[in-house]
Design a binder for these strands. Structure first.
Lengths: 246, 246
DNA sequence: GAGTGGTCTAGACCACTGA
DNA sequence: CAGTGGTCTAGACCACTCC
């Protein structure tokens, strides 16, 4: 069987949060309060709260308390929408348009560097020592980091172009690729989930819970022109794919 | 800052697992051994191991030990592939074909029941008290449970048809729907990640780590004919979507 | 400073596994 | 049975936040 005490405590608190005993953003009872209420030890109470945190119901703030987490603010990413030429032309790259459409103030910060292709060489059909252009981005919605994205392109394509600048200009990476004669013709996204590592937790300001990992491969004809590894919080992120039945 | 002791311990062990100090399936050192090796308390050692478990590197077996987890056995689910008419006709429903294609012995068990539509009424365009047919499935690959799927269809469509039997026959649910004059014309999948609840952990034989949650909505014309909620382990499952750029 | 959560320790007892 | 992990307790000290 299972049914440890900390799970029962978590269950009670979960029900109370759902019943709105405390409003969003309000503090749950402190650890000492919960200890005396449930007659449990501190570790049990803490584990119960950790469960709530991992399931996205609570946020922990050191020195303040455990707060009722806001409901899933969904940073939807709709596959076709977010990459359509249409949106791209009139607006912005990938994610940003989606966030803006939902009323967030979307910003991003970018670091760009170059490194040997190494394990990505095969994918791009280049040598391991050939360089790739790495674009490491953090996306913010209303100042909250909501996505990490590391994009790699073969430097053969990017050398001396806007693709190696921080700001790739209107329409982003894909618009520039198209201008350079490498329009993206096909995308694939592979989605998995994982627990964040320490640096990811920090970068995304997560207190707990899983990550959604997306690896997008973009082809121009037979050639892979971009590999984009995206990470977003499983609790607030949502990926949406739509297609016609064949 | 962060950098708690248990994280350093986890890091060391993670590196050693990756360096194959122990082979897949072998036991990590026991808790007492790790305690003396790292000079840490039991809780620190246990938390380090829990981290490894959550990141999919170790499996815990009560009374036995912590085993090095097998590498990601990917139960790929390719969106278009797995729902194409082609595969459906010559073979099997959804997931099964995919598992078989990878050399797993795929089986599934099904429970079927009926209940008021309730919160699903709006989606199906029926009344809350109208019944839906619920098909609750567990998919196995080589006897390991790898996916939970709860599918709902308005009973108006399923009454007195094979859709209410455990075995819906060749081609599965979608083939029957097509025969009944409701061919699925469009799919949407919404993907999120979450930590498993107790019953999900048990049903999937998980010791830890996140879940991938997929809600698939299938339309026949303007009408939603099926809602399918799927849950699969984030460590072994992988969703794959591919589409042409527009 | 008082109150909060974050980390850590030492020790207890229970439940499961395998010889 | 001995050895393993699972749960729980009581208490310590630290780090952060707010007044």
């Amino acid at each position: 069987m299972s049914g440890a005490d900390h799970e029962k405590i978590a269950e009670v608190l979960r029900d109370e949060i759902r019943a709105q005993v405390w409003k969003v953003g309000e503090r749950l009872p402190s650890e000492p309060e919960l200890i005396s209420r449930f007659g449990a030890s501190r570790s049990e109470v803490r584990q119960a709260i950790a469960t709530l945190r991992d399931s996205g119901l609570a946020q922990l703030r050191h020195g303040i308390g455990a707060l009722v987490a806001p409901p899933r603010v969904v940073h939807r990413l709709e596959a076709r929408e977010r990459l359509s030429r249409d949106r791209r032309d009139r607006n912005e790259a990938a994610f940003l348009g989606e966030a803006v459409a939902q009323g967030f103030a979307a910003t991003s910060s970018v670091r760009v560097w170059f490194e040997p292709a190494q394990e990505f060489a095969g994918t791009f059909g280049i040598e391991e020592i050939d360089e790739v252009c790495v674009r490491d981005r953090i996306m913010f919605a209303d100042d909250h980091p909501v996505m990490l994205a590391v994009s790699r392109l073969p430097r053969q394509l990017t050398a001396h172009t806007a693709l190696e600048r921080q700001d790739t200009g209107p329409g982003g990476v894909h618009a520039r690729l198209a201008e350079l004669g490498h329009p993206v013709t096909e995308h694939q996204e592979v989605v998995t989930a994982a627990m964040p590592e320490e640096h990811e937790r920090r970068a995304l300001g997560l207190s707990g819970g899983p990550l959604l990992l997306v690896r997008r491969t973009s082809w121009s004809g037979d050639r892979v022109v971009e590999l984009n590894d995206m990470k977003l919080p499983g609790h607030s992120g949502e990926l949406r794919y739509r297609w016609g039945a064949e």
